[in-house]
């Protein structure tokens, strides 16, 4: 069989058609949503991760309805369709690899679920019910796209340090580069981790810079400076990284030092952020986990320096 014949055979295959049509549908609908319903750059609503993958799965099932595919084959082809959607998001939407890694369970899960829901729907051949389900999903998509989305969260962590508040304070405002090995898996696969902090002056209103492992810098301004007690800084500029671009805004950070009266200090680290990706029940788990690991990497380093 010639290459041309193979190409035509692949193109006319119902399986390939299902994968292609579902992906074209998804990108058309996201394109229409961005042009007709403009929203802030980086904001991704719940429908884009739930309703669209579900509809992709249903479309695939519709294309495959006469093929007598077994469940295993449906699973394999749904995975292929999801991988294609993820690849297209990387190429056309400019999403970072770690960002796509985080989103992939939702895409895979809902595309597979959609394909099996679709298989059930088309077996019953109840056109009214099928149209109602698809219309309901599209309705939810439109309402969700038109709704306002806002989510703010604060993450707090604490650590016990065997040193006085004065000793700890020396390493809180600014600290030398962190040399400890990364322990968090996302840092190990390339997510930037905090490396060092510099400060222009040790006083209120001074500029602080938090430097990350890939050279990215978060510009901060000290807004509360109570020596040996409390340091609060606002993030005034964050790097344009494809992994976080518009998806999360770190607003403010804080270190509180609590004198335990026995030569030890409890160091509390707080961070406030706005999340622009939804559903928050999923993304907040990741945002909290990442923030927590940033806290602990910095606070463990402060502990090490203070206890020397």
């Amino acid at each position: 069989m010639s290459l041309k014949q193979t190409f035509y055979k692949v193109r006319s295959s119902k399986i390939v058609q299902g994968i292609l049509i579902a992906n074209i549908f998804a990108f058309l609908i996201i394109g229409m949503q961005s042009s007709l319903l403009p929203k802030d750059v980086g904001v991704l609503v719940f429908s884009e991760f739930v309703i669209i993958p579900l509809l992709m799965g249903i479309i695939m099932a519709w294309c495959w309805k006469d093929t007598n595919m077994r469940g295993t084959q449906i699973t394999a082809c749904s995975i292929l369709g999801s991988l294609m959607a993820i690849l297209l998001s990387f190429i056309f939407l400019g999403e970072g690899i770690i960002c796509l890694l985080i989103v992939s369970p939702l895409i895979f899960g809902f595309v597979i679920a959609g394909a099996f829901i679709g298989r059930s729907m088309f077996k019953k051949s109840n056109q009214k019910l099928n149209i109602s389900i698809v219309s309901l999903l599209l309705g939810i998509f439109i309402v969700d796209s038109l709704s306002d989305h806002h989510h703010e969260n604060m993450v707090s962590d604490e650590i016990l340090i065997h040193a006085s508040p004065a000793q700890v304070w020396q390493h809180v405002v600014a600290f030398d580069p962190i040399s400890q090995k990364e322990s968090y898996w996302l840092f190990n696969i390339g997510m930037p981790s905090p490396m060092a902090t510099t400060v222009s002056e040790h006083k209120l209103g001074a500029n602080r810079k938090c430097i990350f492992s890939n050279g990215y810098i978060f510009d901060e301004k000290i807004v509360k400076f109570d020596v040996n007690e409390n340091l609060v800084f606002d993030i005034i500029d964050q790097p344009k990284d494809p992994e976080i671009m518009g998806h999360i805004d770190i607003k403010r950070g804080q270190f509180m030092l609590k004198d335990n009266g026995n030569g030890t200090t409890t160091l509390i680290g707080n961070s406030w952020y706005n999340l622009h990706v939804f559903p928050t029940w999923y993304y907040d788990l990741w945002a909290e986990s990442i923030t927590r690991n940033v806290h602990f990497r910095v606070m463990e380093h402060i502990k090490l320096l203070s206890e020397r």
């Binding site: 077994r70 469940g71 295993t72 699973t75 394999a76 995975i79 369970p105 939702l106 895979f108 899960g109 809902f110 597979i112 679920a113 099996f116 829901i117």
Partner: peptide
């Protein structure tokens, strides 16, 4: 629950595909 089961299916497809058969 359907999402959870789909993710289990994905996992089984990777680690024990014969189960899906």
């Amino acid at each position: 629950a359907i999402l959870f089961d789909s993710l289990m299916r994905l996992w089984m497809f990777i680690v024990k595909p014969e189960l899906l058969h």
